[in-house]
Design a protein around this nucleic acid. Sequence first.
DNA 1: ATTAAATGCTATATAGAGGTATCATTTTAT
DNA 2: ATAAAATGATACCTCTATATAGCATTTAAT
Lengths: 134, 134
Amino acid sequence: MNFSKTTSYSLNILSYMANHSDENLSADFLYSQLGIPYQYLRQVLTNLSKNGFINSSRGRKGGFELARDASTIFIADIIELTEGLEGFNKCVLGFETCPFDNKCAIHDLWDESRNNILKILKETSLANLIIKQK
Amino acid sequence: MNFSKTTSYSLNILSYMANHSDENLSADFLYSQLGIPYQYLRQVLTNLSKNGFINSSRGRKGGFELARDASTIFIADIIELTEGLEGFNKCVLGFETCPFDNKCAIHDLWDESRNNILKILKETSLANLIIKQK
DNA sequence: ATTAAATGCTATATAGAGGTATCATTTTAT
DNA sequence: ATAAAATGATACCTCTATATAGCATTTAAT
């Protein structure tokens, strides 16, 4: 019951970038700042780049930076990329058709709480993270 | 962002048993009722048995049944066994010490929602599942 | 007693997430 | 031009959750 490491890594990278916008950040530098294994960090960065969250520039002085304004990148978007949001639409008991007539006893309570979380994820942008932090 | 299959399997098995208390259920029969791979089902049953959730009887006419009253077995107890509840005490961004001064921007909102879920898990017993179903 | 039906136990296979290593390519500084 | 510093791409390793298989042991029915 947790987000994957890849999701955590991605969120951390992007948060860091949002806090250092207009700076070109190399994988080496990010490695020194975040506690992410170097080679895996590289892969995650590639993934974020290929999917339009960040831009990359090659060669000396190359690096990465946010591709869009931090206010337009929502946490849910990132999670959607890294592990999908399907988990938020599933029965607690783990079956598409819940054995209890497609609606087990805690379905309602569960859905309410889970929808709260989903709402947070969809409404909170990287910019929100920065602003609220300060 | 989901419970493990082992957790789902365990919840399903125990829910089923709560709905069929006083019946001795064999692995073969449970296999026919629940969609759980047979050999893995056996392992999960052994795990539940070793940890006091169910009793087993060997030999012909052997099988499994709840070890305690359904009202005393809470969903959180089961999850604690199968995958632990540590995930509910972690920072969204996945770090013990959140980069944002140990309290990132969505920490509060997040904790509230997550605590709601945890509360549900701790307060809902197998008996509640049956009762509410009817 | 013997057999059938059940669990107990344990070894092994498989798939995917996470992590490591290396070479190719691009760009900048000299 | 050349070397250094960066990303691009890709192959492979490792660990764990999940799944499979089979033998050992127990119990009940005959």
